[in-house]
Structure formats: C-alpha cells, structure tokens
Write a protein that binds this DNA or RNA. Sequence first.
DNA 1: GCTTCTAGCTAAAGCGATTAGCTACAGCGT
DNA 2: ACGCTGTAGCTAATCGCTTTAGCTAGAAGC
Lengths: 193, 193
Amino acid sequence: MPRAGLDPAAVVAAGAALADEVGLAHLTMGSLAERLGVRTPSLYKHVSGQDDLNRRIAALALSEAADAVGGAVQGYAGREALAAAARAFRAFVLEHPGRYAATIGVEPSGPDDPLATASRRLLAAFVAVLRGYEIAEPDVDHALRMLRSLCHGFATLQAADGFQWSADIDQSFEWLITFADRGLRVMSGAGAV
Amino acid sequence: MPRAGLDPAAVVAAGAALADEVGLAHLTMGSLAERLGVRTPSLYKHVSGQDDLNRRIAALALSEAADAVGGAVQGYAGREALAAAARAFRAFVLEHPGRYAATIGVEPSGPDDPLATASRRLLAAFVAVLRGYEIAEPDVDHALRMLRSLCHGFATLQAADGFQWSADIDQSFEWLITFADRGLRVMSGAGAV
DNA sequence: GCTTCTAGCTAAAGCGATTAGCTACAGCGT
DNA sequence: ACGCTGTAGCTAATCGCTTTAGCTAGAAGC
C-alpha cells in the first residue's frame, strides 16, 4: 500500500470540493475516501469524525468568503463597495454551495476556534462597507445584521432553488443592491428604532 | 396490540412537533415512532419514507406560515402591514424552527403539489404587503424576493444562533423593519436597476 | 541498517432506514 | 351475533454509513 500523503488540510479541501459537487447532504465518509483513493477508516487519522469534518469545512468556507468579500471591497466606498461585497458574497455561495451550507448551524466552541476567527473576518469586511454610510454608532450592529440577513437569505434561497417564479434573478439581485444602498442612506439621516 | 389509530396527518403533525423540539437533523423514524407509541416500521403505513415525511412537514409549515402571516396582515397597510407580516413570520420560524427547516431545499413536484399551493399562499401574503407601497409593476417581483430574503435570512440566522455578538436582537429586527419600510418607499419613486 | 512513528489497512460493531411477510383488530354485510 | 376482509401494526432481516480496534508496513531519524 503506497502512502497517499494526506493531511487534515487535504482531506478538508477535498471534502469541501466534493460537497460543492454533490451537495453537503450527499457528502459521506465513504465517497470522500474514494475520491482520495483511500479506504474509509483512514480518514479518521486526519479528522475525528463527520462532525469535525463539517466544522473544518465551515471554517474554510468562511475564511474563503472573507477573502473574497474583503478583496472585492478594496478601493471602493459607498454604493460601489456595497455592490462589490454583495456580488462577491453571492458569487461565492453559488460557486460553493456545499461548503457554504456547512456553515449553517455550526457554533464556534470558543473565541480561538478557527471558525470564530473566520467569522469575524467576514463580518469585518461587511463593517468596512458600512463605513461608507453615515450610520449612527448604535445602529451599526443592526445594519450589519440586516446586511448579513439580506445576503445570506438571497444566496441560500437561490442556491436551494427557492425562487420558482419567473423574473430574472440577476436583475433581482441588482435591484436588491440598489434597495439596500438607498435604504442605508435614508437610515443614516434620522435615528431609527 | 391495541390499534394506535394513526393516519398520515397525525404522523406528520407529530413529526413536525418533534422536529421543533429536537431539531430537524435529529428527527429519526425511530424517535418519531417512539413518540407515537408505535414500532418504527409501522410509520411506513402512513408515509412512504423519510423523504416523503420531510416534504409533508414542509407543506404543513408553509401552510401554517401563510396562515400566520396572512392573518397578521389583515386590516393593515403600509408600514403597519409590513411590520405585522415580518413579526409574524419571524415568530413562526422561532417557534417552529424544525418544521421551517424542513422547507429549505424542497422543490414542489408540480403545480398541484400541496407544497406548491402552500408556497403560493405564503407569497400572496407578502404580495399583499407590497400593495401598500407604490412599487412599479416590473419591480414587484424583485421587491418580493428582497422581502423574502430579508425575512428568511434574519429568521434562519437567528434560529441557528448565527448572531453571536452583543446588540439586542429584537431591537435589530425592529430596525430592519424600519429599514425595509423606508427602502420600499424610496424605491417606489424612481425606477430601479 | 535499525528503530520508531504513524498512515493506511482489514475486521467488526452498531445505528438508522427500509422491505418482506405475518397477525389480529375493526368495520362491514348477512 | 358471526364470519369476511382490509389493513395497522408487528417481528425479522437487509443494507448502507459511521465509527472503533487492532494490525502492518512505509518513511524518517539515528
């Protein structure tokens, strides 16, 4: 038996890729092992089980998403930054539906969990977008949650084929960006709540 | 063996309730059978399998959500209607996270599928909300998708405990309603995209 | 070249979904 | 009241996937 030369990172990367291809629900230890040219139990030398694998895929996904969004925002402000961030986020989720799905419902075990770090990085990228609007300090958290809900909701609904009816989806997304831009500008004037 | 007197509706209702309690992922045929005082294989006399059960729970959830949102909107218009719909929707998802989770990723098999009917009813409730704003006809679809993304995103993120940081979540949701109201009003003026 | 560490293997246990086939309760007609 | 019939629920068994136990041999250091 020739050594396959695996390590945790390689297993997680392959798992994420496979999840993107077949859907997270169809990612089994067996199929992943086969993909890696190895027998199923061998995977347990690198990840401690399906749960651990899922958490690591989630951390990878959030980290990549943070890179994508953070990079897209560079050099822009205001509406441009918002549009770039939203488009980058959606593109990431649509290209990597499996690994993004792994992030839903996982909770960091502590502040040092790679999951928590990656999550903070992604949030930071959205905070940067909000700096382009005159949001009152106490409202920044609310705006951040709104932005995240909007992006998460749209991307996951589309990834799950939740939009059955007719109108063009890209167009809807551009409309949504305009909506968010104008809404944020209006909210910056008067105190909300 | 005394008859338990089950039927598909009772099995689905119990499944939905159990999913709300323990989470959709932990809803097993075994635990559901135990809850109903019956052996596992007996369930297959009422639903054709886990897939079928999931679809039926999803249809039930969408139908109930449509009732809740539709009822809440009655007699209101504009901001009041929007707030009522959003609050009703969020309350439903938070009270019934398991059954709502069942709706994610299921696709109606055809236009007569109870799933499709329930889905249309829920959408209709949101369309009613939008009638209170002067949205140009071609933009109604976009606004509907936006509204759905916003509600779905916020509710599922909260249900999954996705909001780790500090600010008060109810307050964030009220802020979000105000944001959506103002955004919809602004969008009604100028043509978007 | 020898020792040591460990990636990967085979074997096996265990759990959940599902199917096959039996049994007996309930509702019906007589 | 009595038997007939349809079917809800049962036991037994299969199958697939996860996970553990224990072995083996390739690679790295001396």
